[in-house]
Amino acid sequence: MNDLIFFFNQAIIGGVVLGSIYALGAVGVTLIFGILRFAHFAHGDMMTLGGFISFVLAGIVAGLGIAFPLPIGFIVVPFAMLIAAGLALGIDKGFYAPLRARGAKPVTLLIASIGVTMMIQGLIRLFFGVGTYSFFDTQPKVLHRIELPFEGVTRPISFSEPQLLLVISTIIAVVALHYFLTRSRLGKGMRAMADNPDLAKVSGINTKLVVRVTWIIAGALACLAGTMLALDVSLKPDLAFNIVLPIFAAAILGGLGHAYGAIAGGFVLGFAETLAVFNWSVLLRPFRDNLPEWFEIPNTLSLVQSEYKLTVAFVILVVVLLVRPTGIFKGAST
């Protein structure tokens, strides 16, 4: 039983946490791809930027001396999301809108987004250096332990408060997005535009507004994801740059342009990574006595070594691109 709980703590909780981060990032990537038809590489750095906005706001709030039962970084997230949405609109206006107006190819926009990535990274490092920051300098990080009422179980199920908040806010964001896309006029307009931009335009949908709303949603979600990731681990300038590829992998796995697919893809990848590096021999140990003589349980029985954890996502990405480039759900393609 203890080994099972170890498995639950390591693999299941880890997978859910990682999957939530990937899902939040991938939804933004996939929305931008669906509406604007280009792979927005700067999304990872928009996440990092969002994390830093929250960090600055949290510093201001902490300076005011107000005490909260929740992490301050989480309290300020709505405001940070507003700012990040504004910044995303500004980035679009400054760098992508002129290219789109010229009728540039999606590839040109992709290269422009690389330029934006480098500018954001340069600016973040210019102001914050290359060091690591923690949201929990002024308040402790709460750790939840749930003791199970079974006999012989000594190990509790444990997770941290930021992880719980992350999962909760992912669920809220996903449900809100679902209602927005299916019930609101604007959301339906977005889906229409993702399916057929020209048809959407002639049927009177305000495509400029749809583009703006897309950036607002993407920027806000990126900020949420970045902040939650920074709360769970720590804040550093290359926080999300390192996971922008797994995020793309999640979006492609779910089919680019599909919001629900991106969420599913994010969780699939999150679990794939944690399960691949999990040491399965832990689960075999309880059966030590029942196994045949010749079968000796190795010390490590993980599918890949833990230094290759991120590589799992890339391998899945490449395999998906080769076998089924449209993703699990059929994705948009230009």
Partner: peptide, 9 residues
């Protein structure tokens, strides 16, 4: 890094 981003955009 910033200068490179600026140059390419």
């Amino acid at each position: 890094v910033f200068v490179m981003g600026l140059v390419v955009t």
